[in-house]
Amino acid sequence: MDQRLQQTVQKRSQPQRSQRKIFSAIALLFLLAAISSHAQSQTPTAQPAQSPTPATPSAPTLRVYTNLKQVSVLVLSHDYERIKPIDPSGFRISLDSGPLFRPTYVRQQGDDPISLAILIDASKPYPELLPSLMEALAALPPDFLHPQDRVSVYAIDCTLIRTIYDTGANPAAVAEGVKKAMAPWQIRQTQNEKLKKENKIPQPYCRAGLPLWDSMSEVLKDLDQQPGRRILLAITDGGDDGSKTLWKDVMFHAQIHSETVFGLLSTKNPPSSGDAEDKFKQICVNSGGVELQANEHTTILRLKEFTQMLRERYILEYPRVPNEKPGVHIIAVSYKKKSNLFITATGITVPVASEDEKESRKTIQADPSRTPEFGSRTVLPKF
């Protein structure tokens, strides 16, 4: 999630707890990361301008701590289509299968800054979407990405290529980054077309040095260092060809680092794996994203839809519990007013309360009655 959490003392209304059945809920792992007291924000009370006397060393200090958590929630119809805005009062959250509670505050994501990484899988001989991708990105309107957004572009080729990194988002920069990323693939395509016309054997494709899971892992590590709401858009067929990284490691990394994975796949080329288990889809859904499908004629429409889905996500806020323990936990988000919605959430990484915060007499303590309760469910091992 966005690490720039609000620093405030909570004064909003008490969340309503309920034991109602969770509808359309997606369970998600998140991490409570312990941090030292000096990492907390400590803001002294403001002094009057042009004060005639200097402040004494013993002047009272108000310590303000991060007290809110945020989770980004994607809400679609049961067939993964965008829907009209829904009543925010219907959202409920459960932590480690504990009592349901209502978020303190709900809003749509809107213009929140985004750090977007675009990963293009150019390692396959005949990917349907790549020929139309550069044209589609060049034709995207300016509101596809906003000035405050950041963008990085990667391609899976014989090696993992990165052409632009954490750059201000504008259509020209994105189009140029994609063009450079796809240049080796484009050269091979041109050469092989020429060889075919001459009735010669096309050059074999090189094996990707970092297949899909390995490449996604590297891109997510880059995203770890970036601000805003972090998103990975992978343009691929969803099939991996021998990565050293396990797909569950990719999913777990995205969950605990608050990174959302979306996929853009061809309608003609489903994942090549013979397994009934769609691993790439699980990575997307369990990190708060979804798979989108397109063909050469609808690529631009699906790219627009992708950013619309991002802007229309719901940001749910709720108070931090003072006695939280570091570790991996489960969060489930549901909507009690409709049972046929597809709901998936992005993980959150938040600080737990330091001893100084919990015990200092100069700290305004949170009202325990206004904080959610954790359940007793423990997280199973990843494998």
Rank of each mutant, 00 (worst) to 15 (best):
I93G: 00
S94C: 04
S94E: 00
S94L: 01
L95N: 01
D96V: 00
D96M: 04
D96R: 04
S97P: 01
G98I: 01
G98W: 01
L100M: 13
R102K: 15
R102V: 10
P103W: 01
P103A: 06
T104L: 13
T104R: 04
Y105C: 04
V106D: 00
V106H: 00
V106K: 02
Q108I: 05
Q108D: 03
Q109S: 14
Q109M: 15
G110M: 07
D112W: 03
P113Q: 08
P113N: 07
P113T: 03
P113F: 09
I114M: 08
I114Y: 01
S115V: 09
L116S: 05
L116V: 11
A117T: 07
A117L: 10
A117G: 08
A117V: 10
L119C: 05
I120K: 08
I120Q: 10
A122E: 07
S123N: 11
S123F: 08
S123Y: 08
K124D: 13
P125N: 10
Y126W: 08
Y126P: 00
P127F: 13
P127Q: 09
E128I: 13
E128Q: 15
E128F: 08
E128P: 04
L129I: 01
P131H: 01
P131S: 05
S132W: 06
M134E: 15
M134Y: 07
E135S: 10
E135H: 11
L137Q: 07
L137G: 02
A138N: 11
A139D: 15
A139T: 09
A139E: 14
A139Q: 12
P142K: 05
P142Q: 11
F144L: 09
L145D: 00
L145F: 05
H146T: 11
H146E: 11
H146G: 02
P147V: 11
Q148T: 13
D149C: 10
D149S: 11
D149P: 07
D149W: 09
R150T: 13
V151Q: 04
S152D: 03
Y154K: 05
A155N: 07
I156F: 06
I156Y: 05
I156G: 01
I156K: 06
I156A: 03
D157G: 14
D157R: 11
D157E: 15
D157Q: 13
D157N: 15
C158F: 12
C158H: 14
C158A: 13
C158Q: 14
C158N: 14
T159L: 11
T159F: 09
T159G: 10
T159I: 12
L160W: 11
L160D: 12
L160C: 12
L160R: 07
R162T: 14
R162Y: 12
R162L: 07
T163S: 03
I164E: 03
I164Y: 04
I164R: 01
I164H: 02
Y165M: 12
D166Q: 14
D166T: 07
D166W: 07
T167F: 07
T167H: 12
G168K: 07
N170P: 02
P171T: 05
A172L: 12
A173I: 10
E176Y: 05
E176Q: 12
G177C: 02
V178C: 13
V178F: 03
K179A: 12
K179Q: 11
K180Y: 12
K180E: 09
A181Q: 05
A181I: 04
M182Y: 02
